[in-house]
Amino acid sequence: MAKTATAGSSLLRYLGLRFLLIFPTIWILVTMVFVVMRLVGDPITAAQGGKLSAEQLQELITAAGYDRPILVQYFEYLAAIASGDFGTTLTNNQPVVELLATYGVATLELAFYSLIVAFIVGFPMGMLAARRRDTATDAGLRLFAILAYATPVFFVGLLLKLVFAVAIPILPVAGRVGVRSEIALSKLEDATGFYLIDAIKLGNNEVILDVLQHAVLPSVALGLLTAGVFLRLVRTNMISTLNADYIDAARSRGIPEVQLVTKNAFRPALIPIITVVGMQIALLLGGAVLTETTFEWKGLGFQLAEYLSARDYVAVQGIVALLAVIVALTNFLVDIIVALVDPRVKF
């Protein structure tokens, strides 16, 4: 029974439905953040408790409106988020959305490098492990993957620092760029904040090199963590597609083994892989917070850690909610990609 419905319209319907699902997802996430953060009481007591007198505290709380009924505050919070307002930090009075604009690019740059590392390391190794399953090669690769996952990213950072700051100091261990390059970059008009792009725009080879050198260790630390996840993911899915009937059928027609692995088995395995890779965005963000702290990479994660130690919970709540929204949007994008890769779009 060939399907009569045209593929195009069902794809659009699916995407439309998926798009509508973003809203409840975001609502659930921001509500969760609100509930969790406001269980403490109010952020002002949390931040200033002990430092100020009770009257001064009360004054601040009333001024900020934290003494009103919690439901009123909740609906105000929802309305604010709906209009794109994620709050203003207590410590330095900055809108959270502006933080995203200032520091988000740095995190994006780190995530970009790390994903490159993760893809280059994880995918071929996963394919190799699946092809050579249950051999010594496979065992070695799996052990590597598990180790990459088992090693906390900040511990990798510490180890890399031990090696590169102390033993063989050839790579910078902190910051996004050297001081001289930073000054050079700051002179650029219409800078994107993505240092590699800016450096290329500047056309200064020394600056490009400096930017890349600074990126090596953080990207390796965060990239290896993700690579371990990718490797395991690719391996498992490839093993299951390599066992499929259609691979046997293709083999019986004399297709070379290399093609079977890299084309016939890889493409169908890609669909579940992309789905899970999308979910790893959350892991990558969590890892980014720790990586940025370890390597003083001044991104959103680094800022979050700073606000955390300053006990600025309004900022924390805003950043966490914002990241949750970003995750929800990314997952939607991933679903679109899956729908485009999978010719069977039938949901």
Binding site: P24, I28, M32, M279, A282, L308, V316, V320, L323, V327
Partner: peptide, 15 residues
């Protein structure tokens, strides 16, 4: 699905 997508470390910090 929504909770699954949430960065676990951030949630842990909040909690």
């Amino acid at each position: 699905d929504a909770v699954y997508a949430f960065p676990s470390l951030l949630l842990a910090i909040s909690l």
